[in-house]
C-alpha cells in the first residue's frame, strides 16, 4: 500500500485512465479491486470515520445510478436485438452503451472516493502547495473538503429539525422527496452563511491571502517506484486504447 500522496495520486490517475480509455470490463474489474483495497487497507484517515461509514451507501447509490443509466439507454438507444425484461423492451446496443458509460462513471466516482478517503487533509494541502498552487486555492480546497465532510451531519441535523416540525420525512417516497426540498434550502443557506463567517474568522486570526501555510507531516510527497510504475501504466492504457480498434 502506497503511503506517499504522489503515489496515491499516480494510482488515481491510472484508474481514471482506465475509466476514460479502457474497456468497460476493465473498468468493472478496477471497481472491484478498489472495493477490496478499500476493505483491506487500514490507513484511511481516522478523522473521516463518518465518511468511512457512509462509503457503502454512497457506493450503492452510484451502482443504482449506473443501473438506471443502463435501463434508460436500453430503452432509448434502439440498436441491435430486443430483450423484454419485466415488460420493458430493452435494446442490446443501448444496454451495452449504458453498461460502458455506467462502469466508467462508477470507476471515476469510486477511485475519487477512495483517494480522498485515504489522504489526510494536511498531506493533500501540503502536496498542492508543493506543486506550486497559490495559497488561496489551497485554502479554498481545504475549506471545501471541510465543508463536504460536514454535509451529512448538517443534513441529519436539518432532517431532525424538519421531523420535529412534523415534516413527513419518514413517510412514503413521494412525500420524502418533497420534504427533501425543505432540507435543501436550509442546507444551502447555512453553507453560504458559514462560509462567510469562516472567512471572517480566518481574517480575524490574522490570515491574509498569500500567507504560506504549514502542515503537519507534509514532507512525504515523493514519488516512489510504485508511483512511477502506475504513471507508466496509465500511459500504456492510453496507447493501447489508441492502437487497438
Amino acid at each position: 500500500m502506497a503511503h506517499s500522496i504522489n503515489d496515491k495520486l499516480s494510482i488515481l490517475i491510472f484508474f481514471l485512465s482506465i475509466a476514460l480509455a479502457g474497456p468497460a470490463e476493465a473498468a468493472l474489474i478496477s471497481v472491484i479491486v478498489l472495493l477490496i483495497t478499500r476493505a483491506l487497507a487500514p490507513p484511511f484517515r481516522p478523522l473521516a470515520q463518518a465518511s468511512r461509514r457512509r462509503f457503502l451507501p454512497v457506493f450503492l447509490s452510484l451502482v443504482l445510478l449506473a443501473c438506471l443509466m443502463t435501463i434508460v439507454n436500453g430503452l432509448l438507444l434502439q440498436e441491435g436485438e430486443v430483450f423484454t425484461v419485466a415488460g420493458l423492451s430493452l435494446y442490446e446496443g443501448g444496454i451495452r452503451f449504458g453498461v460502458k458509460t455506467g462502469a466508467r462513471l462508477l470507476l471515476i466516482a469510486t477511485s475519487l472516493l477512495v483517494f480522498f478517503g485515504s489522504v489526510t487533509i494536511p498531506h493533500l494541502a501540503s502536496s498542492l502547495q508543493h506543486a506550486g498552487l497559490p495559497t488561496q486555492i489551497v485554502m479554498t480546497v481545504l475549506l471545501t473538503v471541510y465543508f463536504l465532510e460536514t454535509i451529512p451531519e448538517r443534513i441529519t441535523r436539518i432532517f431532525s429539525a424538519q421531523e420535529a416540525r412534523g415534516a413527513p420525512v419518514r413517510s412514503r417516497v413521494d412525500r420524502r422527496v418533497r420534504s427533501f426540498l425543505s432540507i435543501l434550502a436550509p442546507l444551502i443557506l447555512s453553507g453560504i452563511v458559514e462560509s462567510i463567517e469562516r472567512g471572517t474568522a480566518l481574517t480575524l486570526r490574522g490570515y491574509r491571502a498569500g500567507t504560506r501555510l504549514e502542515f503537519e507531516g507534509g514532507g512525504e510527497s515523493r514519488l516512489s517506484g510504485v508511483g512511477k510504475l502506475f504513471i507508466v501504466l496509465s500511459f500504456f492504457v492510453f496507447i493501447l486504447a489508441w492502437v487497438l480498434p
Binding site: L47, P122, L142, L143, E194, E197, R198, L202, L204, R205
Partner: peptide, 18 residues
Amino acid sequence: VGLVLQDPSVQISGIRHT
C-alpha cells in the same frame, strides 16, 4: 484587537488536526 466570535466552531480553522 482580537475578536472571539459567538460560535466557537466557526473560529476553529477546520484545517488543523490538533
